[in-house]
């Protein structure tokens, strides 16, 4: 028998994280599972980890990530959550292209942005204000040649949408970018909701760029840094580093110190093709796919020590949900 406490926790978490549908579950529950407001308040305090379970928006307890999992019916190819904002890139189906769906913490839909392409990356600034995404337009793999991506930003406060970072004025190694071969992917915002990092590919090189949203500019900082993710304290980015600078050989999950531009390879030795997520200032989490297509969420220390740990089986696209 599952204990009463465990069952209540599940129901409450469903309500807190997954909104409307979960409220219906609670309403259908047997009377024995209805608990007083005080208990609900106490249980709501627990932090969660949002994931996708084979494309369904889900969450697990942050302290028991391999325990019971709340699974909603919301379908996403990629999801993220931060600062009270939840975002989802909806799957492409036979009739519709993808779209960005933005929700509040109670899963009330706030905004939908129609997009063309195949969902790939999705992030939200720590405040919950800036949502950024990458879709593949042609080709679908960073390991191939000839692909093209489109990367955009939504300001949830003003509703303003940057459809493509290619609209921004770019400076590459000190010179204005004139080539038409630019591709951007993997945006991550700093704490001021204006400065951001992203990857720019041009002339056969993959650059880490620093961008200024209000000035609509980007400039290159260094090379072979892809899918950066800013640490909570803003001092480092986790990223994937093409092995021997050749994406066909795979990527090493690494951390870059932004002040010294010093790189630290992390303990994960499998190729990581993901935009990693920071659980806290010491730990990053990321997805790895098994050969049969089942994904798992792993975590590893951000200083390169230790060994990777399996965080959530059969899941990907992790995002911490603070208490």
């Amino acid at each position: 028998m599952l204990s009463l406490k465990a069952r209540v926790l599940t129901a409450v978490v469903a309500a807190a994280v997954l909104g409307g549908a979960a409220v219906a579950y609670a309403a259908n529950s047997a009377p024995a599972e209805v608990v007083d407001a005080e208990t609900v308040g106490a249980l709501r305090a627990g932090p969660r980890l949002q994931v996708l379970t084979n494309g369904l928006l889900s969450s697990v307890s942050a302290s028991d990530t391999r325990g019971p999992r709340t699974i909603s019916e919301r379908k996403c190819d990629r999801a993220y959550a931060a600062g009270g904002t939840v975002a989802c890139l909806a799957p492409v189906d036979a009739l519709t292209a993808t779209r960005l769906m933005v929700f509040d913490a109670q899963m009330n839909e706030r905004k939908t942005v129609p997009l063309t392409g195949f969902p790939n990356r999705l992030k939200i600034s720590a405040s919950g204000r800036m949502v950024s995404w990458t879709v593949f337009l042609e080709g679908h793999s960073y390991a191939t040649t000839g692909f093209s991506t489109q990367t955009g930003i939504l300001d949830t406060q003003t509703g303003a949408v940057v459809s493509s970072l290619e609209e921004f004025k770019a400076t590459v190694e000190g010179k204005p970018l004139t080539a038409a071969d630019a591709n951007y992917w993997g945006v991550t915002f700093t704490g001021d909701d204006n400065r951001f990092y992203a990857t720019l590919s041009t002339g056969g090189k993959r650059y880490l760029v620093e961008g200024d949203l209000s000035a609509r500019t980007v400039r290159t900082l260094t090379t072979n840094v892809e899918c950066a993710s800013v640490s909570p304290d803003g001092t480092r980015v986790a990223f994937k580093s093409a092995i021997d600078e050749d994406p066909k050989k795979g990527w090493r999950l690494s951390v870059l110190d932004l002040k010294m531009l010093r790189r630290t390879p992390l303990a994960e030795e499998h190729s990581v093709d993901d935009q990693a997520v920071w659980l806290d200032n010491d730990t990053v989490t990321y997805g790895l796919q098994r050969p049969d297509g089942v994904n798992d969420v792993w975590s590893t220390r951000a200083d390169g020590t230790g060994a990777p740990a399996l965080l959530v089986e059969g899941a990907n696209s992790p995002a911490p949900l603070p208490a």
């Binding site: 529950s29 889900s58 391999r66 999992r69 709340t70």
Partner: peptide
């Protein structure tokens, strides 16, 4: 479990 219709217990050590 129909008392928690949206919950998965796949990683649990127990089967109820």
């Amino acid at each position: 479990d129909n008392g928690s219709t949206g919950t998965n217990y796949g990683t649990s050590g127990q089967l109820g």
